[in-house]
Design a binder for these strands. Structure first.
Ligand SMILES: [Zn+2]
Ligand SMILES: [Zn+2]
Ligand SMILES: [Zn+2]
Ligand SMILES: [Zn+2]
Lengths: 170, 170
DNA sequence: AATCAAATGTTATATTATAACATCCGCTAG
DNA sequence: CTAGCGGATGTTATAATATAACATTTGATT
């Protein structure tokens, strides 16, 4: 039995967490996977991935466009959307359907479809394998005779960090 | 133990199903709920709800706009979006986040947040309570210390009817 | 009649995403 | 070498989705 306070300290994005490590792990994994798969993590794609990993917040495509312009003067919407398409195909980022936004995937190379907990307050997205949920879903698909291609399991609310900071939940 | 063939016949949208009944039940429920709640199911809102219930397919806002114009000459995007906002607030329709589209809710008045099974082939959306999934999700939220406001649980694939018709799954 | 709130009308614009075609660049078959 | 090919990017235009802001209508209340 863990208390909420303990859970908060263990939170993967707790304020004490070493985010540089998040970034370097994500980029290393991405580079490795692309080599193995024989696909090109070009400079533009790499930069977009880095920009996405700037935080654990979901980021909008046009926000990425603004932020890549200093690095890539020629950048246009297609520049970003192509990079995003590539990164999604490779399972390196998630599209957050309910926000029309994007977030780095913490489990690239492992199972990619996960539960996303999206904080309305800080906009950060926590990814959880939620194996019990996935098992229950599989049973449901079997019962329904439904052949799954992809899943989006997105939950909006207040994350444990924000709940601790603000007692008034909007 | 049920076979897939049996499941297919029991499918809530099976080709034999009485869709007029779906529609009249949905509209009756909507009218009743709005009276009870003291909110107005105005002609425009009613028409939009009817248009959505034309099928079990997810419908786009601008498609609704085109289809309501013969009835409401003045209709503009805001006309539709306002009606959709109202219908969503009242739990009478679902927004399908991963399609930017809308579908009637079969369980208005009961619990509204459900698993949506979205067929890529026929575009129909099946709503399932998926209580085991919801329970597993609750446990997950508790563990994460996450305070839920809303959920979007959307799965894309091939429904049992389409799987039966086409052996080649794209 | 004056007032008010809710709904709708109206115009404009913001935001998100894709289509279509041109160019560049590294690789390789001839 | 060089012609051709495919993948990536550049470039222009436009499609598709959604909201903001303000005006008008309408029906209920005083
Ligand atoms: Zn981090
Ligand atoms: Zn938060
Ligand atoms: Zn029906
Ligand atoms: Zn189908």
């Amino acid at each position: 039995m863990t208390t909420l306070a303990e859970a908060s300290l263990n939170h993967p994005h707790s304020s004490e967490h070493d985010h540089k490590k998040c970034v370097s792990e994500a980029l290393d994994t991405a580079e490795h996977l692309c080599v193995v798969r024989g696909v090109q993590l070009t400079p533009i794609r790499h930069q977009v991935l880095e920009l996405i990993w700037d935080s654990h917040k979901a980021v909008k495509a046009y926000e990425l466009l603004d932020r890549i312009k200093p690095l890539q003067n020629a950048a246009k919407p297609a520049t970003i959307y192509r990079a995003l398409d590539f990164l999604m195909e490779q399972g390196l980022i998630h599209r957050v359907e309910s926000l029309n936004a994007f977030v780095g995937c913490s489990s690239s190379g492992h199972q990619h479809e996960q539960l996303l907990l999206i904080c309305k307050h800080c906009n950060e997205v926590e990814e959880r394998p939620a194996t019990e949920v996935m098992q229950a879903l599989s049973q449901e698909f079997d019962q329904a005779g439904f052949i799954v291609h992809s899943k989006a399991i997105e939950v909006h609310g207040i994350c444990i960090k924000c709940a601790a900071l603000y007692d008034d939940q909007d």
